[in-house]
Design a protein around this nucleic acid. Structure first.
Lengths: 188, 188
DNA sequence: GTCTATAACATGATAGAC
DNA sequence: GTCTATCATGTTATAGAC
């Protein structure tokens, strides 16, 4: 009794992971508000009360289901930075983790999600600004780089704009390269 | 009795406009799901039943409160196009109509809002593509222009990223100009 | 440990009094 | 025409049976 049963713990972990997976899917598809505990439980094939038992609250479930955006770039010169950003974008356009989609999906309507996204974008902006060659308004230029890429990602992954979804990710990245370079190294 | 009283019709129109204004504010701030008929009525200083009386349903109220994004550009050459897009952006960063904010705020979580935004962005993309100088993938390049600007607008107006909100709109537009030019006229 | 039953509440919408 | 009262529904969360 006092010794925990490994197989039971294992089962619990498996069930918890399955619930988390269903939660990620639904949060990614419908956002925080329109996703119900009932729907998550049903998708995971468990009782709604079990979801509460494991995660305590819908908010807690969302917090654990949501995943941050990719880590900020680490490059130190402009060209490497642009390459790194485009490599990240290419990966993102190939498919973002559902936990990340969940966070992005809710960022405009859920303040908690907005805070997390703001945080991550702020960090990304700082990292980009640090790698930018000398020039005016490094932080603003970095923020423009980050938000422009965010717009492309949102248009592709969340709005499903056909010109973007139809194009191969590599082509998109190639077309963006000179634009990002222009932001990274303004001639003034 | 059979003759409508002008002053009453006028009062009704005034009240309706006040309700619509409150609805725009709340939809813009919280999105469709988190805005309640009760909250709209309270903000407008009327009874919730009156809102239903005038607009029939919450969905109908939202439909009438939401306003499309600015009209697509009409320029026919690349430089004029970029100037026009940046002028529009500058105006947007100065402050978007609340009905438009309402639409954008809900575009990731409300399918009806998503449809309207997709529609408008699609039209914008077509218009930009038509004005683009000859080159490969005009539609894709146009979509990248449109989504990049959308990202900047969202980052500024809805997420409130400080590097963007702190910068004068003209500075932002100036930094974006070479980037948009690079998208408009790829060297390949 | 798991699930049934239900509490406690908020919402959109409606019916009917005044 | 306006508002009170209420309905029907759906939500998170909890208590307790098995």
């Amino acid at each position: 009794m006092s010794v925990p049963d490994p197989s039971r713990t294992g089962r619990r972990r498996v069930t918890e992971a399955r619930i988390l997976g269903s939660a990620r899917e639904l949060f990614a598809a419908r956002g925080f508000d329109r996703t119900t505990i009932r729907a998550v439980a049903s998708a995971a094939g468990v009782d709604p009360a079990l979801v509460m038992q494991y995660f305590g609250s819908k908010r807690e479930l969302f917090t654990r289901a949501a995943q941050e955006l990719p880590a900020p770039p680490t490059a130190t010169d402009a060209d490497a930075l642009v390459d790194q950003l485009l490599a990240t974008l290419t990966r993102e356009l190939g498919g973002l983790p559902e936990g990340t989609l969940a966070l992005l999906r809710s960022m405009l309507t859920d303040p908690a999600a907005a805070d997390r996204v703001r945080d991550t974008l702020g960090r990304q902006t700082q990292a980009v600004a640090a790698a930018l060659p000398a020039g005016p308004d490094p932080e603003l230029r970095a923020a423009l780089v980050v938000t422009a890429l965010l717009g492309v990602t949102v248009g592709h992954q969340l709005l499903g704009l056909t010109p973007l979804t139809d194009a191969p990710a590599g082509r998109t990245a190639a077309l963006l390269r000179p634009a990002l370079r222009a932001l990274a190294r303004p001639r003034a």
